[in-house]
Design a protein around this nucleic acid. Sequence first.
RNA 1: GUCCCCAUCGUCUAGCCCGGUCUAGGACACCUCCCUUUCACGGAGAAAACCAGGGUUCGAAUCCCUGUGGGGACGCCA
Length: 485
Amino acid sequence: MRTRFAPSPTGFQHIGGFRTAFFAWALAKHFGGEFILRIEDTDQERKVEGAVSFILDELAWFGIEIDEGPGKEELEKLGERSAHLPKGGRHGPYIQSLRLPKYKAAAQKLIETGFAYRCDCTPEMLEKERAEQMARREVPGYSGYCRTREVPEDKPHVVRFKMPHKPKLSMQDAVKGLVSWDNPPLRDPVLLKSDGFPTYHLAVVVDDHEMEITHVMRGDEWLPSTPIHLLLYQAFGWEAPVFAHLPVILGEDGKKLSKRHGAPTSRELREKGFLPEAIFNFVMLIGWSPGGEQEVFTKDEIVRLFSLDRVNNASGVFLQSKLEWMNGKYIRDLTSEEFYKRVREFSPEIDSIKSKFLELSPHLQERAKTLLEIPSMIEFLTDKKISREWDKVIKKDVTKESAASLLNELKVLISELSGFEIEILDKSVREFAEKKGLKVGAVFPLLRIATLYTSATPPLFESLHVLGKDQVLRRIDEAVRELLL
RNA sequence: GUCCCCAUCGUCUAGCCCGGUCUAGGACACCUCCCUUUCACGGAGAAAACCAGGGUUCGAAUCCCUGUGGGGACGCCA
C-alpha cells in the first residue's frame, strides 16, 4: 500500500487540499504502507514561491510524517527551504520539474508505439478553432489535425495522445463505485508541452507508476479526466492503480472551498488559535465517518478505523462553529503545561506570569474555544491598565458613592483576613454580604469589576487568590478612587 | 452543448450494499430549563430531514426508472 499527496505549488493550499493528504496518509498508515509527497510543479507560470515550504511546514504541524518525498538537495534546486525536510527515497526526484527526461522518454515511447503524435498547431490556431466550435455550439476540442501530418521532431511542437474513437470505459472507483463512460467528451489531450514540461495527465501516470503508487486519492474534480489516465496506462502496458475520488469540501455558502469564499488555509486556522489535532479530527469527519456516535478521535484511532468504503460520495460543508466546539474539547483535554506551551506561541509575554497562568489554567481551558481568546482572558493578571466595566454594576439603584463605600468595607475585610485561601475568601465575603443584608449578586459583581476589570472572568475567588492579597487591595483602592473622581 | 458525479434535520452525519427492528439515531448551531457570583463547563429537554413522481414488493430512506436540483469536466492549468 503506497499513497501519495501530490499538490501543485500554485498557491497556499486551503484546508480541503490538506484533507486529501490526510485521507491518503490515513489509508497508508492503516495498512502499514508508505505515504509519499510529490510536488507537481509542471506549470511554471503559476508557480508560487514558498508554496512548497508551506506544504512541508503545515504537514509537519499536523503531525503527518512523510515516508518519501523531496529531500534537501531537491528543495535547494527549487530554492525552497523548510525546517521540515522529507527523507527522500528510492523513487526520486519527487519534484516533477526535476524529472523532465522521464516524461520526454515516456512521450517518445508513445509516439513510437503509435499512441501519440507531434502537433505543431499554434495556440492562435487552437483558439480560433475553439471559437468556431463554440459558435456552432459544438463540444470544444482539438480536431486532430496533426494526427496524420508527421510533424518533424525539430519543429516546435507538443505531443498529443491519440484518443480512441468513442471509447467505452469503466472503472471501479474505491469511493464512487462503478463509473463508466460512454463516449467521454475528450479530444486528443496534450501530454508534453512545447516547453518540454509534461501536462498533468502524462506526469501523474508516469510518476504514479514509477513510484509504485497503489492508491490514487484526489478530489473528484478529476473524475472526468480519469479516462485519459486509464487509456494512458493501457497504452504504456501498465497496470492502473486503484482510484479513489474524494468528495470536495464546500464553504458555508455551499460553494466550493476557495480563497474567494473565505476558505481558510491551515495557517489561518492556526492563527485563529485552532489546534492541529482538532482541525485534523474535524476535517477527517467531513466526507468520512467510522459509523457510530463517537466524534472525537485521536489520530491513532482514526488510522485504525479509516477505510475507503466509508468515505462519503457527497460533498460536505466546512462549518466553523462545529470546529470551534471540537477545538474547545481538545483545549480542555490539554494538561496545564501543554496548554501553557500552546498559548505561549501566541503571547510569549505570558512567561512573566507563568505560575499564575498555570494555577488558573483549568478555568481558562474550560472557557476557551480557541487559543486566541486566552490573552484577553488573562489581562487582569498583568499590570496592563484596563478600564473597568463600571456600567455593568453602576445602575440607577447603585450609585458610585454607595459602590465606593461598599468596596472600602470589602477592603478592610480582606486586609484583616488571616489567610488568602480561596475557601477563606469565599466564606468571608459571603458572610459579609449576609451581615449587610445584601445578596451575593450585589457584592460579587462589584468586587469582580474592581479587581478583575470585566464582567466575564474565571471564578472570582480563584482569580483573587492567584492575583494575591496586595494586588487585590491595591486594585480596590484604585477602583474607589476611580469611582469618586 | 457533450460527458461524469452527487442528493437524509440549517450543517456534519448514522441508517442504504444485505428492504421490515426507522413514529429515521447522534453531533454542531439555535431555543427552553437545571447547576451557578459573571462568563463558561456540565446536565436535561424542545424544534428540525429521507428532493419529486412513478414502479417492484405484503412492506422502500433503503432496490429500479424518470424528472428536478446542485456540482464538476471538456486548456500547451492542475
